[in-house]
């Protein structure tokens, strides 16, 4: 018997199913005839629980999957492997968090510039390139959506004050 990534995922999925099945009891029943609102999600969650259980058992009895100890769990390796993805996550969260203040135009330019610089490097020449790329690309996209497709993109409090 071994514990590996799949075991942890299966346990997480079982917990998720448990919470959601519990939450399905709170779904209101308006008393109409026909299928209740909770019927279909309950079927899906029950099947999901069964499959998660199968995955858990398979992961524990499987001899082909490495157990956690033998997997490359060195924190430095994990950091390097997920560094760029983490930067993208972080920048995107910042972009969304400040969208109301900066708006899509300024926020978008800053997001692209920040991401380009963090992923590409901080050399002067690159920074100049990144700022040009971010201003031009976001400027074009913003113009297409605002003027071409008539989409009202978030203006942001900064531009509103101006």
């Amino acid at each position: 018997m071994s514990i590996n990534k799949d075991t942890i995922v299966a346990i997480f999925l079982l917990l998720f199913c448990g919470i959601m099945i519990n939450s399905s009891f709170d779904i209101e029943d308006p008393g109409y005839q026909g299928m209740k609102a909770s019927f279909w999600p309950t079927i899906v969650l029950c099947l999901l629980s069964v499959m998660s259980l199968v995955m858990l058992i398979k992961s524990m009895v499987s001899s082909t999957v490495n157990n956690l100890n033998s997997e490359n769990t060195n924190s430095q390796n994990i950091f390097l492997r997920y560094k760029n993805a983490s930067i993208c996550f972080l920048m995107f969260i910042l972009f969304l968090a400040f969208l109301d203040y900066l708006g899509m135009l300024i926020g978008g330019v800053l997001f692209v510039f920040g991401l380009l610089t963090l992923l590409g490097g901080f050399q002067i020449k690159k920074i100049i390139n990144h700022s040009i790329i971010s201003i031009i690309t976001i400027g074009i996209m913003w113009s297409i959506f605002t003027f071409g497709l008539k989409v009202i993109l978030p203006e942001g409090e900064i531009l509103r004050i101006w």
Partner: peptide
Amino acid sequence: ASVILAYCAIGVFA
């Protein structure tokens, strides 16, 4: 990737 990620956000908002 950086440019397309921003484009995804604008596109989805639309």
